[in-house]
Computed example of a mutant assay.
Amino acid sequence: MGNTPNVARRSESSRQAIFAAARELCAERGYGRLTIEAIASRAGVSKKTIYRWWPSKGAVILELLDEAATMKAHHPDTGDLAADLRTQLTAVIGMLAPPQTSALAGVIAEALHDPALAHDLRERLIEPRIAEFKNRMRQAQRQGQLSPDADLDVALDLLYGPLYHRLAFHLGMPDPAYLDTLIAHALRSLSMTQ
């Protein structure tokens, strides 16, 4: 019994090797030049192993991004809404930059042409983070930091829209000073009674 291989441990180590390879290759080559073959070779696994778990490179990267976003881009609640938004938005900016090698920017671009990936991106990565954002904003409303009738869909667009606008048109991600200005203006508009 002691000599029986632990399949779960082997599977998890292969999974982590695949994620590490995909992350490294994206950083080196960019998402567009990423292939399942290159991931398999770098991870030391077969293409068959990857395809057993994921249908495409987009699916591999999406799961990798989901784990990264859970660790890096959560919505803190320190009681200081502006600081918490700065922390969260800075994490998102870090995931989008530089766009040439950002796995997230690559998946977003591919999802424009792949309806199944777009669906999975929304369901797995985007919608849960929107729910977290709205929960954090509702807490701010309860604490009197935002108007109780602030439209949280508009809040989402005011705070995150500029990041994706700047990404789409190659304008560069906001620097810390601009991000602070963006947050201050958005919070000012959301604090006013309608």
Rank of each mutant, 00 (worst) to 15 (best):
1 M>H: 08
7 V>A: 06
9 R>T: 14
12 E>Y: 08
13 S>F: 12
13 S>I: 15
14 S>C: 05
16 Q>Y: 02
17 A>C: 13
18 I>L: 09
18 I>H: 11
18 I>N: 13
20 A>F: 12
35 T>Y: 07
39 I>D: 05
41 S>K: 12
47 K>Y: 05
47 K>D: 13
47 K>Q: 13
51 Y>Q: 10
51 Y>F: 11
52 R>Y: 12
54 W>S: 01
57 K>S: 03
57 K>Y: 06
60 V>H: 06
60 V>N: 03
62 L>Y: 06
63 E>A: 09
64 L>P: 01
66 D>N: 13
67 E>F: 00
67 E>R: 12
67 E>Y: 00
67 E>P: 00
68 A>E: 12
69 A>E: 13
71 M>G: 13
72 K>R: 13
73 A>G: 10
73 A>I: 00
74 H>R: 12
75 H>R: 13
75 H>T: 13
78 T>Y: 08
78 T>A: 08
78 T>V: 10
80 D>N: 15
82 A>H: 01
83 A>I: 02
86 R>I: 01
87 T>P: 00
88 Q>I: 01
88 Q>G: 03
89 L>H: 05
91 A>L: 04
91 A>Y: 02
98 P>Y: 00
98 P>I: 00
98 P>E: 00
98 P>C: 00
99 P>T: 09
100 Q>I: 04
101 T>H: 08
101 T>R: 10
102 S>W: 04
103 A>G: 15
104 L>I: 07
105 A>T: 01
105 A>R: 08
110 E>H: 05
111 A>G: 06
111 A>M: 11
113 H>R: 11
114 D>M: 07
115 P>W: 00
116 A>D: 15
119 H>T: 14
121 L>P: 03
125 L>I: 04
126 I>S: 03
128 P>W: 05
134 K>M: 06
134 K>A: 02
136 R>W: 02
136 R>A: 15
137 M>R: 08
141 Q>V: 03
141 Q>T: 02
145 Q>M: 15
147 S>I: 06
148 P>L: 00
148 P>F: 00
148 P>Y: 00
152 L>P: 05
153 D>N: 12
161 G>Y: 07
166 R>V: 11
168 A>F: 02
179 L>W: 12
179 L>P: 07
180 D>G: 12
182 L>A: 08
184 A>N: 13
184 A>I: 02
189 S>G: 03
190 L>F: 04
190 L>T: 01
192 M>D: 06
